[in-house]
């Protein structure tokens, strides 16, 4: 209709194959949300807030500045790859226990960043944690309870 070219893609998201058709510039964020991965949040769409953070091959990054086509062949994890209602991930448990959230909008991205951090560095200092989450903005808290929660998991205190 509009002369744009679209490309068929096939991604592996949380271990499952997801197919779709996207434009060259379509972001992974828009693709995932169009496929009902609504746990990936759109806060700014310019890489400035971190709400859309996912793991790509284990590294946390913003999906809004990731090309959907380029994400093919890589391991993509959203928040849904963590725990389930019956069995929360220890990080999710800790976020609830420490009230490390209020409105919950930054939480999916924050948890993915925390997950990547602890996978790479199981015993971070508080400063390491603050550095790791510095691309994930939270407007409700002052980050303290978030750092508390991640630290508790790293110390096995959950």
């Amino acid at each position: 209709m509009d002369g744009k070219e679209y490309y068929n893609i096939k991604l592996i998201v949380n271990g499952k194959e997801v197919k779709g058709s996207v434009a060259a510039e379509t972001s992974l964020l828009d693709f995932l949300r169009s496929k009902n991965y609504i746990e990936v949040k759109k806060g700014c769409d310019k890489g400035d807030c971190g709400a859309c953070t996912v793991l790509i091959d284990g590294k946390a990054t913003v999906s809004c500045l990731t090309s959907a086509i380029q994400a093919q062949g890589r391991k993509i994890q959203t928040l849904k790859s963590l725990g389930s209602w019956d069995k929360l991930d220890p990080l999710q448990e800790a976020f609830v226990k420490h009230e490390a959230l209020q409105c919950g909008f930054c939480t999916p991205g924050m948890l993915m960043t925390a997950k990547a951090l602890l996978d790479e560095n199981p015993h971070p200092t508080r400063d390491d944690i603050k550095e790791a989450i510095s691309g994930n903005l939270c407007r409700c808290t002052g980050y303290k309870k978030i750092v508390d929660a991640i630290e508790a998991v790293s110390k096995g205190e959950n």
Partner: peptide, 24 residues
């Protein structure tokens, strides 16, 4: 050339770049 996209995708979203081919 498109590598990480942290600059180029911003320029596209802000209409600073409007057409062309993204080379992965």
């Amino acid at each position: 050339p498109l590598a990480g996209g942290s600059n180029l995708l911003v320029y596209i979203k802000e209409n600073m770049v409007k057409s062309g081919t993204l080379i992965d």
